Measured scan of single mutants.
Amino acid sequence: KRYRAVYDYSAADEDEVSFQDGDTIVNVQQIDDGWMYGTVERTGDTGMLPANYVEAI
């Protein structure tokens, strides 16, 4: 699945990823209600991200 960031996010922990509004997130997997795991296409960084900061595309 592919998602697009709708807000900027700065990683708060080493297992999270930072991204900017408009970034595409690929290979996304749902972890639980609030978190997903995926790769930021622009940077190649992979990690956890907050589900409410992205939307499906």
Results as ranks from 00 to 15, higher is better:
1 K>M: 13
1 K>T: 12
1 K>C: 14
1 K>L: 13
1 K>S: 11
1 K>I: 13
2 R>P: 06
2 R>V: 12
2 R>Q: 09
3 Y>E: 00
4 R>Y: 07
4 R>N: 04
4 R>C: 08
4 R>D: 00
5 A>C: 08
5 A>V: 05
5 A>P: 00
6 V>R: 12
6 V>L: 15
6 V>Q: 07
7 Y>Q: 14
8 D>S: 15
8 D>L: 07
8 D>P: 14
8 D>H: 10
9 Y>I: 01
9 Y>A: 01
9 Y>R: 06
9 Y>S: 01
9 Y>L: 02
10 S>C: 14
10 S>R: 11
10 S>K: 13
10 S>Y: 13
10 S>N: 13
10 S>I: 14
11 A>V: 02
11 A>E: 02
11 A>W: 03
12 A>I: 12
12 A>Y: 09
12 A>D: 08
12 A>H: 12
12 A>V: 12
13 D>A: 14
13 D>E: 12
13 D>F: 12
14 E>Q: 11
14 E>P: 13
14 E>C: 13
15 D>P: 06
15 D>F: 14
15 D>K: 14
15 D>S: 15
16 E>C: 11
16 E>F: 08
17 V>N: 00
17 V>R: 02
17 V>S: 02
17 V>T: 04
17 V>G: 01
18 S>M: 01
18 S>K: 01
18 S>D: 06
19 F>D: 00
19 F>S: 02
19 F>I: 05
19 F>Q: 00
19 F>R: 00
20 Q>D: 07
20 Q>V: 14
21 D>P: 11
21 D>W: 15
21 D>L: 15
22 G>Q: 05
22 G>Y: 04
23 D>V: 03
23 D>Q: 01
24 T>W: 14
24 T>C: 12
24 T>Q: 08
25 I>C: 04
25 I>F: 11
25 I>V: 07
26 V>R: 08
26 V>F: 10
26 V>M: 09
27 N>E: 09
28 V>P: 05
29 Q>V: 15
29 Q>G: 07
29 Q>Y: 14
30 Q>E: 11
30 Q>H: 13
30 Q>C: 14
30 Q>M: 13
30 Q>R: 14
30 Q>V: 13
31 I>D: 05
31 I>M: 12
31 I>H: 07
31 I>F: 10
31 I>P: 04
31 I>N: 06
32 D>H: 12
32 D>N: 15
32 D>Y: 12
33 D>A: 12
33 D>V: 10
34 G>I: 14
34 G>E: 15
34 G>F: 15
35 W>Q: 04
35 W>C: 06
35 W>S: 03
35 W>I: 05
37 Y>M: 11
37 Y>R: 11
37 Y>F: 12
38 G>Y: 01
38 G>H: 01
38 G>L: 03
38 G>C: 04
39 T>C: 09
39 T>I: 06
39 T>L: 06
41 E>I: 08
41 E>W: 08
41 E>L: 13
42 R>G: 05
42 R>D: 04
44 G>E: 04
44 G>Y: 04
45 D>F: 09
45 D>Y: 08
46 T>Y: 08
46 T>L: 04
47 G>E: 01
47 G>V: 01
47 G>T: 01
48 M>F: 14
48 M>W: 15
48 M>I: 11
48 M>C: 11
48 M>T: 07
49 L>S: 00
49 L>H: 02
49 L>D: 01
49 L>Y: 11
50 P>W: 05
50 P>E: 00
50 P>K: 08
50 P>R: 11
50 P>D: 04
50 P>F: 05
51 A>T: 10
51 A>R: 11
51 A>D: 05
51 A>Q: 07
51 A>W: 06
52 N>F: 10
52 N>M: 12
53 Y>R: 09
53 Y>C: 11
54 V>C: 04
55 E>W: 07
55 E>N: 07
55 E>A: 10
55 E>T: 12
55 E>G: 05
55 E>M: 12
55 E>S: 09
56 A>D: 11
56 A>I: 14
56 A>T: 09
56 A>P: 14
57 I>G: 05
57 I>N: 05
57 I>R: 05
57 I>W: 11
